[in-house]
Design a protein around this nucleic acid. Structure first.
Length: 573
RNA sequence: CGGGGUGUAGCGAAGCCUGGUUAUCGCACGUGCUUUGGGAGCACGAGACCGUCGGUUCGAAUCCGACCACCCCGACCA
C-alpha cells in the first residue's frame, strides 16, 4: 500500500480532547475519527487492525467448536418485551418506531435472538450442545462515553452463546470459553486477568470479567498477590474480624452540632470511625425506600445492596424530603423510628456493639446503639465496599485495589431467556426442558485500544505482529540522489503485493523529508521499519529496524524479501 | 441527570476581560525553485457561516440570554 494513496493523515499535534494514550495515538496516527459522542469511524488502518483482532477471536472461537453466524441489528420490540428486558433496561436501549408504527429497538446484545432461534431449530437433546457467535454492531445509548474507543455507544462485539442441556453442560461450555479467552488475549498481547463479577442485567448464576490493568479503567479490582484472589469490587468480599466483645450499654442521646459526616462526628466525639454507624438512603427502581447501615469506616457497595434486596431498576440516592417523610434526618439518620423503609444492615454492624448512630434530629446522635436490640433489620447482608489493605477473604493477606478495563466477559445465563422464548428440548427422559444458555462477549474496538495502551512508547504505537495492519513500513530516502533507491523500494513493494493481503507493507513513497517519514513510521507502529537509501544500498541492502526493540541492521534485499513473504528474517551468520 | 470546562481554517492555539480597519500565529495544504538519514529553506497562494439563534449597540468573535455540540468528574455501565 502506497502511503501517498492511503485514506489517512497523521497529525503533528495531539488533538485537544484525547486524554488516554491509546486515544491520542489512534487519532494522531490516522486510525480512527470521531463522529459524535461515543461514535467513531475506523479509517483503513484502524479497520485493518480491527479485522486482525477479529480474526484472532474468530480462530479461538472456531477452535472450541463455536460456529460463526450473523444476527440483525434492528429488532422488533416484541422480542425484548417477551424477555422482559424491554422494561428492565433504561434509556440505554434505543427504541423507535418503523413506518408502520411498530415498536423497534436497536440491538443491545443478542440473547433474545439466539433463544428464538433455539426455539425454532432445536427439538431434541440430540441437537445439543451448540455454540454460536457473531461479530455484530451493538448500540447502547450510554449516559456517558469516554476514553476514545474504550467506552463508546456504537461498537462491534463478538458475542458467543452456548446452548446446553443442563448445568453440567453449561459448565463445560463456560470452561471452554474461559480457556479460549485466555488464548485470545495472550495472542492479542494483553495481560488479561479473570475476575469474578456481578451478573447485572444479564441475570444468571455466575460471571467472570477479563480485565486489563489500566489507570483509566472504569472498574476497580480487588486483588490478592498472595493467593491470587481477584474479584470486581462490585462483588468482592473481605474478612472483617470480630470487634472486641463488650456488654451492650444503654442508649444515650448526645448533642453533636454540625456533624453531618462520619469524619466530623468521629472527630467531635473523639471516637474512631469503627465505633459509628453510617446510614445511606436510596430509592429502588421499583419504588421502595431503602436505608442501608454500614459501620462508619466502610462505604456502602450499591451492587451488593441491589442484590441483597433484589432491586429491579437499580438505585438512586434519596432526596432529603423523602428521607424526612420516613421519619429520618439526612446527616443524622438511623433506622431508629424509621417507617415505610426497607432496613438493610451490614453483617459487621450486627457484630459491632455500642455504635454511635443518628438520632434523626439535626445536631443529635445516640451512643450505644445495638442491633437487633434497638431496631430490627429487614435484611442482614454483607453490603460493604472492600478497601485497600483489607484482609483477603481467602487467605487473610492484605488486598490491593487496582483499576481495570473489561476486555471480555463470560456469563452463565441459565434458562431465563430460553424459558421466555419457549426454547425447550425433549430430553432422554421424554420431558421438555429449557435449554441452558451462556453468553460470552469481547468488544473489538475496545480491545484495539487496549492493545495500544499496552504497546506504545513516547514516539507512537508498537503493534504486535499478529494485529499490525501491515507487516512492515518501508521508507525510501534519497531517491533523488540515487535511482536505485526507488528501484529497490518499488521491487520490495511488488513482492509484498504478491505475498498476500496481510503480508502487504506500507510503502512511504511520499515526497517528504527523512525526518517526516521516520517520525510517521514510528507513530504508525508497524513491527518492522525497512529503510532503503543510498547509504543502506552501499552497506549491502536494506536497513531493518525492529520497532519494538529498536534493534537495526542492514540486510540483503533477499533477506528482506523473505521477511515480507512471511518466512521470517533469516538468522545472521 | 448533577458539577466543571471548551467551542475561532484540517490540527494546535492567540484575540474576548477593556466592543471599533480586511480576525492573528504555528503546523498541515497548493504552486515554483532549492533541499533529501531525523518533523527542511525561500517566495507566492488558497483556506474561517468566529458552534446556533436571539438581544444590547451607530458598530459584536468580544457584552447579555437561550439553545446545541464535545470533553472531564460523578451518577450509570454487558
Amino acid at each position: 500500500m502506497r502511503l501517498s494513496q492511503l485514506f489517512f493523515t497523521s497529525l503533528r499535534d495531539d488533538p485537544a480532547e484525547a486524554e488516554m494514550p491509546s486515544h491520542r495515538l489512534l487519532l494522531r496516527a490516522g486510525y480512527v475519527r470521531q463522529l459524535g459522542a461515543g461514535i467513531y469511524s475506523l479509517l483503513p488502518l484502524g479497520f485493518r487492525v480491527a479485522k486482525r483482532v477479529e480474526q484472532i477471536v474468530r480462530e479461538e472461537q472456531d477452535r472450541i467448536g463455536a460456529q460463526e453466524m450473523e444476527m440483525p441489528v434492528v429488532h422488533p420490540a416484541e422480542v425484548w418485551k417477551q424477555s422482559g428486558r424491554y422494561y428492565k433496561i433504561g434509556p440505554e436501549l434505543v427504541r423507535f418506531k418503523d413506518r408502520g408504527e411498530r415498536d423497534m429497538v436497536l440491538a443491545f446484545t443478542h440473547e433474545e435472538i439466539v433463544a428464538i432461534l433455539l426455539a425454532d431449530l432445536v427439538q431434541s437433546y440430540r441437537q445439543l450442545p451448540k455454540m454460536v457467535y457473531h461479530f455484530q454492531t451493538k448500540f447502547r445509548d450510554e449516559p456517558r462515553s469516554r476514553g476514545g474507543l474504550i467506552r463508546v455507544r456504537e461498537f462491534v462485539m463478538k458475542d458467543a452463546y452456548s446452548c446446553d442441556r443442563d448445568d453440567a453442560g453449561l459448565d463445560k461450555s463456560y470452561r471452554a470459553q474461559y480457556a479460549a479467552y485466555e488464548r485470545t488475549f495472550k495472542r492479542l498481547g494483553l495481560d488479561a486477568i479473570a475476575v469474578g463479577a456481578d451478573v447485572g442485567v444479564m441475570g444468571g448464576s455466575g460471571a467472570h470479567e477479563f480485565m486489563v490493568l489500566n489507570e483509566y479503567g472504569e472498574d476497580t479490582l480487588v486483588l490478592c498477590d498472595q493467593c491470587g484472589y481477584a474479584e470486581n469490587q462490585q462483588i468482592a468480599e473481605v474478612r472483617k474480624p470480630d470487634p472486641d466483645p463488650e456488654d451492650a450499654l444503654p442508649m444515650q442521646d448526645v448533642e453533636t452540632p454540625d456533624t453531618t459526616t462520619i469524619e466530623a462526628l468521629a472527630a467531635f466525639l473523639g471516637v474512631p470511625k469503627t465505633r459509628t454507624a453510617k446510614a445511606a438512603f436510596f430509592v429502588t427502581g421499583d419504588g421502595r425506600f431503602v436505608v442501608a447501615i454500614v459501620r462508619g469506616d466502610y462505604d456502602v457497595n450499591e451492587t451488593k445492596l441491589v442484590n441483597a434486596i433484589k432491586a429491579t431498576g437499580g438505585l438512586r440516592p434519596a432526596q432529603v424530603e423523602e428521607i424526612r417523610a420516613r421519619g429520618m434526618e439526612a446527616g443524622y439518620g438511623s433506622p431508629l423510628g424509621a417507617r415505610d423503609a426497607v432496613v438493610v444492615v451490614d453483617e459487621l454492624v450486627m457484630r459491632s456493639p455500642n455504635l454511635v448512630a443518628g438520632a434523626n434530629r439535626v445536631g443529635w446522635h445516640i451512643r450505644n446503639v445495638n442491633v437487633p436490640r434497638d431496631y430490627s433489620p429487614d435484611v442482614v447482608a454483607e453490603i460493604t465496599e472492600a478497601r485497600e489493605g483489607d484482609q483477603c477473604i481467602r487467605c487473610g493477606s492484605p488486598v490491593t485495589l487496582r483499576k481495570g478495563i473489561e476486555v471480555g466477559n463470560i456469563f452463565k445465563l441459565g434458562t431465563d431467556f430460553t424459558v421466555a422464548a419457549g426454547a425447550l428440548y425433549l430430553g432422554e427422559d421424554g420431558e421438555r426442558h429449557p435449554i441452558v444458555m451462556g453468553s460470552y462477549g469481547i468488544g473489538v474496538g475496545r480491545n484495539v485500544a487496549c492493545v495500544v495502551e499496552a504497546h506504545h512508547d513516547e514516539k507512537g504505537i508498537i503493534w504486535p505482529e499478529e494485529v499490525a495492519p501491515y507487516a512492515a513500513h518501508l521508507v525510501a530516502i534519497g531517491a533523488a540522489k540515487d535511482p536505485q533507491v526507488t528501484h529497490v523500494a518499488e521491487r520490495l513493494h511488488e513482492v509484498a503485493q504478491g505475498a498476500g493481503y496481510w503480508r502487504d507493507i506500507l510503502y512511504d513513497d511520499r515526497d517528504e523529508s527523512p525526518g517526516v517519514k521516520f517520525t510517521d513510521a514510528e507513530l504508525l507502529g508497524m513491527p518492522w521499519i525497512l529503510t532503503v537509501s543510498p547509504r543502506s544500498l552501499a552497506a549491502g541492502g536494506v536497513e531493518v529496524t525492529n520497532r519494538a526493540t529498536g534493534e537495526r541492521e542492514t540486510r540483503s534485499i533477499e533477506d528482506v524479501e523473505a521477511l515480507i513473504r512471511g518466512e521470517g528474517l533469516p538468522a545472521t551468520v
